Simulated assay, not measured.
Amino acid sequence: MEFPASAVVVCESNRTRADLYELWLDDREVRQTLTRSQFADAFDAGVAVLVLDLSFGEGGAEPVSERVESTAPHCRVLGIRGRSRAEPDPSCDRELERPVFEPDLAECVETLFHRANYHLLLDLYYRTTVAIATREWRTDGDPENDERYGRLRDRAERLQDPLNRLRERMTDEDVHAVLRGFTVEDVPDGESDASIEAKYRPDECSRCGLDWNEPIDGRDPVAQLGAYVWRCVNCGHVDMRADPSHQSITSYK
């Protein structure tokens, strides 16, 4: 089964421990980082789990946690702490105390890996179903000749299978933990769809036809240049949509 977020980043300043963790997690794509600069290069939206030494680098783990929140909010954090650290870190989804043993590490990473990907898939499913409902409303319940509507329906059906298969691997506690992470902003009602996409952002590039609701390698397929201006990452075309009647304006390289 392919996952939208496939990587595990091990953020550990001790090379011996980092090598050991990577060996224990060899069934996953592991990126090992020993310094803050290596972490900055290795971490992106395709990361599902961060194994984080809570004493990592200057300033501790807080700057790393801030990067996770801003770049990949779906990413789950497994904190590794020393015995002298009594208080749990609120930014961690789970914590292990050193010395860490292989079964504990593997079990925690597997659980958090499934939670991260269930979060991503569920979020995309909600975005898609809201977009379907919006198009049905705009066409007075008769969108059958709308090509975009058909693609949205197909996507929603395709998402159901991986969601169901992931759900089978998860406990009820795991699912509830994911659902607690969703807020009103994640799945808005009615016209409050700014968190799904900018209010008037087109669904696709008018030049190359790229679907702007489908991530590309874990990244957003469109960059917002201004309040109502978007650039396609595939062909560089720029669209401006200050209201639904505005059309494409130019290309941008």
Rank of each mutant, 00 (worst) to 15 (best):
E2S: 12
A7S: 13
V8P: 09
V10I: 15
R15F: 06
L20W: 09
L20I: 14
Y21N: 08
E22T: 15
L23Y: 11
D26L: 07
V30Y: 04
Q32C: 13
T35M: 06
F39A: 03
F39M: 11
D41H: 11
D41A: 13
A42Y: 09
G46R: 05
V47H: 04
L50F: 05
F56C: 08
A61I: 07
S65I: 14
E66K: 13
E66C: 04
S70I: 11
S70C: 12
P73Y: 03
P73F: 05
R76K: 07
V77S: 02
V77P: 01
G79V: 02
G79F: 02
G79I: 03
R81W: 01
R83W: 06
P88R: 01
D89W: 00
P90T: 02
D93N: 11
E95N: 01
E97T: 15
R98L: 12
P99Y: 00
V100E: 05
E102P: 14
P103W: 09
D104T: 08
C108F: 04
E110P: 01
L122W: 15
T129P: 09
V130T: 15
I132H: 00
I132D: 04
A133S: 11
A133G: 06
E136V: 13
R138I: 12
D140F: 09
D142F: 10
P143K: 11
E144F: 14
E144W: 15
E147Q: 12
E147S: 12
Y149W: 15
Y149E: 06
R153F: 02
D154T: 15
A156K: 00
R158H: 09
R158V: 05
Q160D: 12
D161N: 11
P162I: 09
P162R: 06
L163P: 06
N164W: 00
N164K: 11
L166A: 08
R169S: 07
M170F: 11
D172T: 14
V178N: 04
F182Y: 12
T183Q: 05
D186Y: 11
V187K: 06
S192H: 13
S195Q: 10
S195A: 14
I196R: 14
A198M: 06
R201I: 08
P202M: 09
D203H: 08
D203M: 10
E204F: 14
G209K: 03
G209A: 13
P215D: 05
G218S: 08
G218Q: 03
R219H: 14
P221V: 08
L225K: 07
G226V: 01
G226N: 12
V229C: 02
W230Y: 05
R231W: 07
N234G: 03
C235I: 11
G236C: 06
H237P: 00
V238F: 02
D239E: 11
R241T: 14
A242C: 12
P244Q: 04
Q247N: 07
I249P: 01
I249D: 02
S251C: 10
Y252Q: 09
